[in-house]
Structure formats: C-alpha cells, structure tokens
Write a protein that binds this DNA or RNA. Structure first.
Length: 663
DNA sequence: TCTATATCATGCGTCTAATTTCGG
DNA sequence: CCGAAATTAGACGCATGATATAGA
C-alpha cells in the first residue's frame, strides 16, 4: 500500500492532525444561526411548489432590490422572502446571516423549476435525469459489506484496504488507489447501485450520529443544464501536462449541513467504467479494458476547506480551478491537479466530510462523509477533442475560447430587437455584474448557464461549422419557430414540456431561457466587478471570477496539504467485473435512439433553407474522424436525458439544479 | 490631483503541425 | 516496418488586472 497514491503529496505520511489549519477565520466569515439554516431548508422545499409566474417575476425583485454594500444578500433575500414568506415570518428583520442564506436562492428563483428531489420522493424520481444514477446513496451501496463503512471508511487509512471483491493484487502491486479503486458506474444494469436502499430518503441510509439535526446534506448541481448539454454528446475533458481546467466546471450548492460543524469539501474523480474508449466512426466505443494502474492524485480539495457548514451553504461551491492532467508526476504544492488517463471515462464525485474545527477528520466517527454523484458530470479524458460537437460546445460556451467563435464579431452586432444574446453591455465581459445574481456576473459563469450558441447561430447565420445533430440544438429550433415572439417570451419559456410536443428538448430551452432571464433581469443593477469581489471576497462569485480570471486574489485557506487526508473511495465494484462490463453497460456504447436527431433535422432544414448559412465551412473546424457530424454524432445513449421521459417524471421541467440528498 | 486611456504581463482556450506511441 | 492514433508544443486570440502615461 502506498500512501502517496492515496494522499496528495503534501499530506503524505503525515497524520491528519499535522494539518491544524485554523478554521477560525472561516468560521468568522460565515456564522449563521441555526434558525437561518432551518429556514433555508424550508425554503428549499417551498421552492418546489413555486409557480412559474412567481419565477418570472423574479427580475422585478432584482431591480428593486439590492443596491450598495449588501447587494448580493439583499437581492438574494428579495427572492428568498418572496419564495418563502412563511419561512420568514419568524424573522421580520433580516439579519446579515439571513441575508446570506437568502443569497443562495437567487438562482433558484430565476431558474425554471429546479430539479428537486425531496426526501420522500426520491424513489419516484429515479427515472429522471438526475436520479437514474444512485447518487448520494452510492456510498452506502458501494460498500455494503465492507465493515459497514461506506465512503467514510475510505477517508481513513484503513480504507485503502481493498474491500470485499477487490483484487488484492491491485493493491499489492502498488497501483493507485484512485485508479485501482474501481469504477463508478454511472448507470445501467452494470451499475452497482441498482436501486436505492429505500430508506426514508430513498437515497441511502447515511446517518450522522454526531451531527446536529442529522445534518443530511443536499446538493445541487448548479450548472446542470450546461453539463447536460455536453453530456448528451459525451462530455470530453482535455487533459494536458500542465493541467487543464474543466469546462463546464463543477459547481454545487449545498444545504442541510450543520451550520457550526466543520466540513471539508472535495471532488474525487473515479473511473466511471472499466473500459478504454475510442472515438471511432463518429461515436465513442469501448476499446479494451481500462488501465486501472493509473497512479496519481484523484482528489481536489476545495481551497476553502475546511470550513463551516454555514460557509458551504452560504454560497455556491465552485471547482472552477480544478485542473486535469495526464502527468502523473505533476502535482506541485501550489496546484492540485487530478491525474487522469486519456480515453478513459471518469465520474466526478463530491464528498463532504465533517471534520473537527481544526480540519481534522474525526477518526472516531466514520459516518461523517457524504458523497454525491451526478451522472451528467461524467466525461472522457482526452488529449485532443474527438467529437467536434464537444469542441464547438466548448468554444461556444467557454469564455476563454471566445477567440474561436467564428461569429464572435457578429454575435453582438445584431439589432437589439433581434438579439437573443446579451448586448455588449449585457456581456459579462463588460465588467457589469449583477448584485444578487452571482451567476450572471462573469462570462464563464454566464456561459455555464446561458446557452447563447443557438441564438448566435440563428442570428448571425454565419456559423460555418457543419451542423450536427448535437449542435442543432432544439433551442435553435425553438428560437426559429418563435422568432417572432416577444423577447419576454424567450425569457419566460414555460418550464413545462407539453406532452407530445415535438420539441423534445424544450427543457433545455427552458433552462437557457431562464438563464438568460437571469442575465438580463438584473442588468440595471450593475456593479463593478472589483467591487463585488472586494465585497464578497470569499463568495462563489468572487472565487470563480478570480479563478477564471488570470490573477486571482483568492485566498486559499489551504493548499494541497490536506489536514484531513482525503482518501479515495474504495472500488465501486470488484475488479473482476471488468470483463463483464460491456454487457452490463450497453447504453454506454450503443448509439442512442435519441429524439435529438429529429429536432436537429428540423432545425437544419430551417436554417439551411432560409439563409443557406450552413453552406460555409469553418476553416477552423476540425472534422471528427469518421465524420462525427449529423447522424453519426456520438450522442450518448442516455435515457436519463430523454426529455420525454424526463418530463414524464418531472412535469415541472428541468431546472438549474440537480438536487440530491445524501443518505 | 484625479480620471481616462494605453500598454504590458499573464492566463485561459483551441487550432495546427510535428512528434511519439502503439498495433498489425 | 508502416500506418493510424494519440500526444505534444507552438501559435494565435481573447480577456483581465496592474501599471504607466496623458489630459482635464
């Protein structure tokens, strides 16, 4: 057993107690009465029942809301109070802490119906995009027989021992615990977590005996729409020697934590399946077994760890600085990089570990770790993009790739009345940010939420890339069909997908439309970025803005040294399953019978016939081997993304968040 | 002195071509 | 050994923050 394979270099061979980083600062940063948290919890649930009209009126709240120092909080609070007036009855005077709690809900208000799994309905949501994968309960399901310890056990040295069914040879040979730690099946019959344990939450049986009020965390995937957009084409993430940031990046909202307890939050990236993948014929196909000997760090500790539950719940938890690399030896002290192997499929997992105030994991209680997995976060690590659809999505959504947007010049030059995309002043790059709406402040974040690609294409008509199914988003179709509609309609697309509608991807439209709403409705409350950053230096916005900017002023509370020694999860399944995974994961390799194709055709037809804008060929565009475009687009088969099915189970449509409760 | 503008360094991204690796 | 695929390095573009400079 090699600890260096388990722990980040800085913490190798060091007892966790060695890292006695003071968390007092972080505590002071975000104290919040327990009452506020409880209210917050109530708000979460009440949000579910919020009506569409309520949501659409959100911008007014923003407009009339925050100005000045407390912008974020006030703006957010405006929504909070609106969405949950009852919950606020007990506190007519909103304290700072309450404001803080309210911040978190601004996005909820603006978004279309956020995907939500209440603690009692999780099982019914299993067929939904978010719930196909046994999320939070995974940990409990993964190690059913490993001493009764789920992931928490993995956080201890003892956890490096192979669980039942895990080939001991993989350990004895010194292979990485991360890689050798098995795979995180995402879905399908091969999944080790065919169902939830059926506890009260339906998502596992996690209990936190030492935590106040049970402290069962709930996690939202904030930028889920964008993740889904990539996921339906099989997300690819570039890995380089020097490390490459993820895009989309992981971003979560957490609730349900003990306000005063301390937690470490980190992301672990595990193999999603035991296959080696290859992009062939325009689609991803398995190609032998994965190399699970890969060594290197698979953990990325959020730089604000450790911190209080109040801190984590106050703002969005972003992992925008997380870098992926294929350089096994590249893990300097300043930058945590997750070492991955090209052409392997990975599944990021969010871990929340309750620790002592010093950031030291409580060895006496192994049940303080909660794990969350979102299948839409799966990706295949590559050194060069394989699927041109993914390339284009990256270009269109990643602000750092703006230079490669063929129609970038014309994107913002269309008549104001015709534009679906933000005006230059709306553009995050204008440095105009919106108080109270962190998500519209920065380009990267806007792009995380707002899909401006289809609109761009629609308006410029100069996008020269060969359109593929995946790129011909139904959004565009929707935009085409509703070109004459008032802009307001675009911002307030009903989140409910009508049964039988041909616009099978309308849920995406809703997402992005409401995202746009987010961007615009708050525009007048512009604020200098620097101000916002200085005012909320530790906010998610600030951290991300800094992170995605070039020179971050972000103050890390800790570097790679982990005071609590995160350790990888034990194998998600025995290694002997390697040979059987193909059969167990048919959906991973089988081309999808996606409704996506239909909508794509329609859009392509419209665009091509109307303006012939697709006659041009982008000189930059690199064709995928085998012609990945159009029908061969390697859209992954993912029933969980089928809008019909999704809407069937989620009549409210898809929201901004995937939301799960921990076991 | 203050404000606005220009310049520079840095970091991010993708693209392209060259190099390396791997399998037949 | 050869060809294909994967990987790497350099080029280029965009954007930001910091700093320097010019003008009111």
């Amino acid at each position: 057993m090699q600890l260096e394979n388990i722990l980040p270099s800085a913490s190798i061979n060091l007892p966790k107690t060695f890292y006695n980083l003071s968390s007092s600062d972080s505590v002071a940063n975000s104290p919040r009465p327990a009452a506020a948290s409880q209210q917050q919890q109530q708000l979460e649930y009440q949000d579910v029942d919020r009506t569409e009209s309520e949501s659409s009126s959100a911008p007014k709240k923003y407009l009339s809301g925050a100005v000045g120092g407390g912008m974020l909080g006030e703006a957010g609070d405006a929504f909070t109070a609106k969405s949950a007036p009852d919950a606020r009855k007990g506190s007519p005077v909103l304290g700072e802490d309450e404001l803080a709690s309210g911040r978190r809900y601004s996005i909820d208000e603006l978004g279309s119906d956020r995907y939500f799994i209440s603690s009692s309905q999780a099982s019914a949501d299993m067929a939904s995009p978010c719930s196909l994968f046994p999320y939070a309960g995974q940990a409990g399901s993964v190690y059913p027989g490993s001493g009764g310890s789920r992931y928490p056990a993995s956080l201890h040295y003892g956890s490096v021992l192979p669980p039942a069914g895990f080939s001991s040879s993989s350990v004895c040979t010194g292979r990485s615990q991360f890689a050798g730690a098995g795979y995180q099946f995402s879905q399908g019959p091969g999944c080790l977590y065919p169902s939830y344990p059926g506890t009260g939450t339906g998502i596992g049986s996690m209990s936190l005996p030492g935590s106040a009020a049970g402290a069962r965390a709930q996690v939202y995937l904030c930028n889920r729409p964008l993740w889904l957009k990539f996921h339906r084409h099989q997300t690819e993430m570039i890995i380089t020697k020097q490390g490459r940031r993820m895009f989309p990046f992981l971003s979560f909202n957490i609730t349900g934590l003990n306000l005063t307890a301390h937690y470490n939050v980190f992301v672990e990236v595990v193999l999603a399946d035991p296959n080696h993948w290859r992009f062939q014929g325009g689609k991803w196909v398995t190609c032998g077994k994965a190399d699970n000997n890969m060594q290197g760090n698979k953990m990325y500790v959020h730089p604000e760890s450790p911190n209080t539950g109040a801190h984590w719940m106050r703002q969005e938890i972003s992992f925008g600085k997380l870098k992926l690399t294929n350089n096994k030896g590249a893990n300097n002290n300043n930058t945590q990089m997750i070492v991955l192997q090209s052409l392997h499929k990975y599944q990021p997992r969010l871990h929340i570990v309750e620790v002592t105030e010093d950031g030291v994991e409580d060895m006496s209680n192994e049940a303080r770790t909660q794990t969350f997995t979102f299948p839409e976060n799966q990706f295949i690590a590559v050194t060069a993009y394989q699927n041109t659809d993914i390339t284009q999505l990256k270009i269109d959504h990643n602000p750092f790739a703006k230079g490669f947007r063929d129609n970038y010049d014309s994107m913002y030059t269309a008549p104001e009345s015709d534009r679906l995309t933000p005006s230059p002043t709306d553009s995050p790059r204008s440095t105009q940010i919106v108080p109270g709406a962190r998500y519209a402040m920065q380009p990267f974040f806007q792009d995380q939420f707002v899909n401006n690609l289809p609109q761009n294409r629609f308006y410029t008509g100069e996008r020269a890339v060969p359109q593929t199914n995946s790129l011909l988003s139904p959004q565009s179709e929707d935009a085409s069909a509703a070109a004459a509609s008032a802009a307001a309609q675009r911002w307030f697309v009903p989140p409910v997908q009508q049964p039988g509608s041909n616009k099978l991807d309308l849920s995406y439209d809703n997402d992005y439309s409401t995202s746009s709403l987010l961007s615009y409705g708050i525009k007048p409350l512009s604020l200098q970025t620097s101000h916002a950053l200085s005012y909320y230096p530790d906010s998610a916005f600030a951290s991300m803005a800094a992170g995605w900017g070039t020179r971050s002023t972000y103050q890390r509370k800790m570097t790679t040294g982990l005071p609590w020694s995160p350790r990888p999860s034990p194998p998600a399944f025995p290694e002997d399953q390697l040979g059987a995974t193909k059969d167990k994961l048919p959906e991973e390799s089988a081309p999808p019978a996606s409704t996506w194709i239909e909508t794509s055709h329609s859009l392509k037809s419209v665009d091509s016939s109307d303006s012939g804008v697709y006659s041009m060929v982008c000189k930059r565009r690199r064709m995928s081997p085998g012609g990945s475009s159009t029908e061969n687009s390697p859209t992954i088969k993912c029933e969980d993304l089928t809008t019909e099915e999704y809407n069937k189970d989620n009549p409210k449509g898809m929201g901004y968040y995937a939301f799960y409760t921990s076991p």
